[in-house]
Design a protein around this nucleic acid. Structure first.
Lengths: 341, 341
DNA sequence: CTGTTAGCGCATTCAT
DNA sequence: ATGAATGCGCTAACAG
């Protein structure tokens, strides 16, 4: 089974390569019967036009790049779904690059995508450090941020208002009678999902007249195990009676905290209420369902693509600009109990 | 900022394009100082060689295609990780195509990947129906199956022995004193993960002297919600006392079943034991941890790539062949209780 | 060791 | 409406 090109088809159909190209891209521009001949020849030869050659010739591959820090984050799936969908609707494919949690590899991701002629890039999560920014500047193609932002350049960013969301979550707890609320925060040096959510928690506390007590907060890397550890440390410091609720900066950590509480004989929500953050699929799948604040991942993905596509169409490297704060939402499930007293 | 090609660099460095190409692909084949000149020129111009043009010229893109039925399956992440890793180790990139649960789109996936010159394809999950097989035959590039198999052609397949795994899971339950075990199965028409697991369950039952009772089994689509529904139907038929344990054909459905049980006042594992299948991340994150049978997703991914790469290197479209059954493993956590009587 | 030439497969002017 | 020629950016022979 040899290589069949546009040329082989042309010979078979007794026409020129150009004509074959035409029926491929604009069938109406060619005579009805020659068109049929060509189409038949293509079918008989099982011709597959080379997207590579086409790309070289046309100078664009109709793809957008998606740069993620690591596909192990459970949020990836939900984000990707939105992205792939609208990209498809606009005739674009998405080229995925996984940085595997390696900063350097993430940098490589940009050049990889560039070398593959993506029309634009969606950068996901992870703070935009200086080197990223420098890379992006030299790139010459539009870049939009999803679930993160850059404080230097006016890169378009799509995310939620993390401090307000954390504020609301904490307020939600307080409105139900909790005033000693522990927090399992993300790393404070993480500006996008660490410091912000901690800040929101703190603001709500003081706003509604509760005291911020340092012993009640600890930190983790957003994953299950560290959520467990952080909860353990808090418990060690303040004991089982030290708090009536805990707010975690991610669903995974919330689940880790719940496990830890269970092992210490504390039931959720009877003895302590727990709130998560993200509203991943798993939040619904656990029993009792995890009360959490939802980020509209899918919607964020969609908007990011649309913004990117717009910049691409407009033809320039600058995107629609600005930080777009999408609405979060508190999803009430079963891990929060109102204090009856 | 204009387009900088291999030619621009050549001019800037005062050499021929061919020389630039050489420092790109085999730096040692060029004089030390000219090489430096070229490298400097490349740096100054921020030259990014076009992977597309290179691909066209070399007739291969150094990528393998990954065809998944839908990225919403939580197992995707774990599989992808193994695949991307070893692909990278061999200098290959993986091109992802998501069929979005659409049979027709999955077919398109093959031609898409083919048109993008992938060296081979890993097809994931979903039964290999006739049209798939026909497509694969015409493709002219090696294809390996992960988490599924084909009963017609000797396509290489990497998966677990589902009937034995289900057998073992059921036996595990019986060894702990359970003999009225409900099953939340996958669709019986699904040959790879539906009928097989149900069969294993049934075999264990009769093998160890328990009766197969039809009222105790119901079906779902492997996802949470249907697991819930199936459990609900079983409960409606046999009542709360009808069984002491339930075996689900997926972790998601196990979690759905647990939710249903909880809503009927049944505690896990005190009142009824539950076993899942897959050992997704979530199995560890719920409390109590879900006892389940683990599929070595990551390992399967790695092997699939290696098999594919081998066929590619060998230069032909036939892969190492045969169905490779990888060992499963029962992961004991907290949802199964031994009956003490 | 380096420059020249000639494609890779397709799209796109121009002619006809 | 269709064919011939040219170029996309790069690699690979073959010279020198």
């Amino acid at each position: 089974m040899k290589k069949v090109t546009i040329r082989t088809v042309a010979n078979r159909a007794g026409v020129s390569p150009a004509t074959v190209s035409r029926v491929l891209n604009d069938p109406l521009k060619v005579g009805a019967d020659t068109r049929r001949k060509v189409q038949q020849a293509m079918a008989e030869l099982d011709f597959q036009p080379s997207a590579i050659a086409r790309g070289l010739s046309m100078q664009h591959m109709d793809t957008i790049g998606l740069l993620v820090p690591g596909i192990n984050g459970l949020f990836f799936n939900e984000l990707y779904q939105g992205i792939d969908e609208v990209a498809g609707e606009h005739g674009m494919k998405v080229l995925l690059f996984d940085a595997q949690l390696d900063h350097h590899r993430a940098l490589d991701g940009f050049t990889f995508l560039k070398q593959h002629h993506v029309a634009g890039i969606i950068f996901t999560s992870g703070s935009i450090t200086d080197d990223y920014q420098a890379m992006i500047d030299r790139l010459g193609i539009p870049v939009v941020l999803a679930l993160t932002h850059s404080r230097m350049r006016p890169l378009s960013a799509f995310r939620t208002d993390d401090v307000k969301a954390a504020f609301d979550a904490t307020a939600y707890l307080m409105a139900r009678g909790h005033n000693r609320i522990a927090m399992v925060s993300g790393p404070p040096e993480n500006e996008v999902a660490g410091a912000t959510r901690l800040q929101g928690y703190r603001q709500a506390l003081t706003r509604y007249g509760a005291e911020y007590v340092e012993e009640l907060v600890d930190f983790g890397d957003f994953h299950f195990h560290e959520g467990y550890r952080a909860m353990e440390r808090i418990l060690a410091r303040v004991g089982k009676e030290g708090f009536t609720a805990v707010f975690a900066a991610s669903d995974e950590m919330a689940l880790g905290a719940i496990r830890c509480l269970a092992e210490h004989g504390l039931r959720v929500p009877e003895d302590v209420s727990v709130m998560g953050y993200d509203n991943l699929y798993v939040a619904e799948m656990v029993t009792p369902g995890l009360t959490t604040v939802a980020q509209p991942f899918q919607h964020i993905g969609r908007l990011a693509v649309e913004c990117l596509l717009q910049a691409i169409a407009a033809g320039q490297t600058e995107t629609c600009g600005g930080i777009h704060l999408l609405p979060h939402q508190i999803i009430e499930r079963g891990t929060v109990k109102a204090l009856s007293q």
